[in-house]
Design a binder for these strands. Structure first.
Lengths: 341, 341
DNA sequence: CAGGATCGTCGAAGCGCTTCGACGTAAGGA
DNA sequence: TCCTTACGTCGAAGCGCTTCGACGATCCTG
């Protein structure tokens, strides 16, 4: 229970060298002869030495920890968040950093606290909103940060995200190639648009622009997440008088609703893809698990997270990084889309 | 950008007291006169002082950070994990601690690393498996830990979990009261049982025991997570010759499958709850969102996490804690269950 | 073969905080 | 009134590490 931790002094004594020599072996910041290095390394292993994180942070002014700030409200779907978080941790570990988990409900004060106390060297913030109150703080903070998503004014910040406008357009392009003339986008719940969440709007804009470019007819609608609401909405779309008598393509950008949409179509007797082609913007596993497996544009949570951490590490090293990074979406064709009958 | 951080020495100078006095004001470990205290507190506020975490950890031998270790494979469903993680963070903050996020893929070495380096004071591990390889390490670690879930041998450890056996039994009791005589449990995918994941097995055991106690007929089956597999399985259950000609109650302990099960029943023309009563073991939001809203036993991820952190804090304070904590499940009646026709 | 570079190592000075013992000073007991 | 006790505060000694400057020893270069 109470074994005292091994210190660098004990390693030095065991190896017959100075404390500073051990430090230099471990950090590689000065050249050390191969024989000495080996002796030190052996002592480290034999004694089971682990440098004390606090002492290291104090002396070096680097904690080797980054903060990951989760959104308070789940604008993004929970599983994506999770995938995101694990990817941040994994990537950070590759750079020999650990991850401190924070929730957004501590607000700006929480960020200031961890930054000012030197608990963390930098920050990754997820799911930033358009008029995020933490953004001004980030600008004045000494510690570098990377945002997932784009606030209204992203000048001077480093932001990463999937290119949702392209994602929306990609879906439209795919349906256009298959000959669909009237298509609809079922997006996030209405409240998400009202909140000004960037990704939802950008998808819709990409959708609208592409529809116009192809000369199609298109409607972009919010989409709630209970079966009954989804059913009602889908039913209305196909009703005569909906304004889209020839509707044959559906784009669903709402993970929680995608299952409900398929259920609704089944109940309405619409076959996928014979009667209606469906494209989803969602993680691959959701698309794979659906029936039929959905043609989809992947939300590459892992890649976004990976890139975000890489950018943060670059900033920590004092390197210059681009302000905006948009990840190219990729469309995977599965069994839910087909040429228009 | 490069404002140096305020140190305790500057606060002391500003307030006209010794460094140690500031420290005692902040920690409350010695009595300080009200006037001095106020003067120091004012200086702290004026200067915007935040104690350096590394220095504090080094001097006090307490990092005020706990580790949260996520499972590598998502045995538990992702949204629950997420809910869990946020609850751990929130609770830890109430005790003035932060949370270091780790994934299980670093394995035992990762735990040893953060513990030996004094990065964290204690550990919370999620989704522990029956023969978890990290368990022996935890026993010999100086740092206290709390596990979510039970390994095969939990002696000497502190474990918390929902009482899944009771949860399974509760579902059966409810169906029994409604007069259902033949019922089935659709559980986790087969691979989860093979892996020896505790919660899946314990639910099944609770189910079986209760079925026996009520003199019902019951079948416990694994359940995959794609629509087609679920559909096949549900269809088979209702087929003549399945051995359950009077099947009228279904218990679903699989968040990913619960939507598919309802879809399947719709397609098979089975009405819920008129023809079949369905009880789910899942978070409330999933049950609420289903159509019809599902009678369910809640997985109180937040409560479990909260309790886990409380136990860890108690151990950090040197208090004794019970080895096993089982949280009582709660069944909420919604619209998916009804008396047998 | 002398002079300057270069290499490998050491010693010591912090980093910012907590905590221990000590030292007045004011309050309580005899 | 004198001695004890408690209270409030201070100074200094670390905590374990990194990093700077220094110093022999070895290596070239002319």
């Amino acid at each position: 229970m109470s074994r005292r931790a091994v210190t660098i002094a004990e390693v030095a004594r065991h190896a017959g060298v100075a404390v500073s020599t051990v430090s230099y072996v471990l950090s590689g910041k000065r050249t050390i002869s191969a024989t000495t290095r080996q002796r030190v390394l052996d002592s480290v292993r034999v004694l089971g030495y682990h440098p004390n994180a606090g002492a290291r942070a104090l002396a070096s002014k680097r904690a080797n920890v980054i903060a990951l700030v989760l959104p308070l409200r789940a604008g993004m779907h929970l599983p994506v968040l999770m995938q995101f978080a694990t990817s941040v941790v994994t990537t950070a570990r590759q750079y020999d950093h650990d991850v401190l988990l924070m929730t957004a409900d501590e607000g700006p004060d929480g960020l200031r606290r961890v930054a000012a106390s030197a608990l963390v060297d930098g920050l990754v913030l997820m799911d930033v909103e358009l008029d995020d109150q933490r953004v001004p703080l980030l600008r004045e903070l000494a510690e570098p940060s990377v945002l997932i998503g784009f606030p209204a004014d992203s000048a001077g910040l480093t932001c990463v995200d999937l290119d949702f406008a392209r994602a929306g357009a990609l879906c439209v392009d795919h349906l256009a190639e298959l000959g669909h003339r009237e298509i609809a986008l079922l997006g996030a719940p209405a409240v998400v648009y009202e909140r000004g969440t960037g990704f939802a709007r950008r998808t819709r804009e990409g959708f609208s622009a592409a529809v116009r470019a192809h000369g199609q007819t298109g409607a972009a609608l919010p989409c709630e997440e209970t079966f009954d609401e989804v059913f009602g909405e889908v039913k209305a779309l196909f009703e005569p008088g909906s304004g889209m008598p020839g509707l044959s393509g559906l784009i669903v950008h709402n993970e929680a609703a995608v299952g409900h949409v398929l259920s609704a179509l089944r109940v309405l007797g619409k076959r996928v893809p014979e009667d209606v082609s469906v494209v989803a913007i969602c993680p691959d596993d959701v698309a794979d698990r659906a029936s039929p497996p959905l043609t989809s544009v992947l939300i590459p949570a892992g890649d976004v997270a990976h890139r975000a951490v890489e950018l943060l590490m670059a900033k920590l090293d004092g390197r210059e990084v681009p302000e905006a990074t948009l990840l190219e979406p990729r469309l995977t064709v599965r069994e839910s889309t087909a040429p228009r009958a």
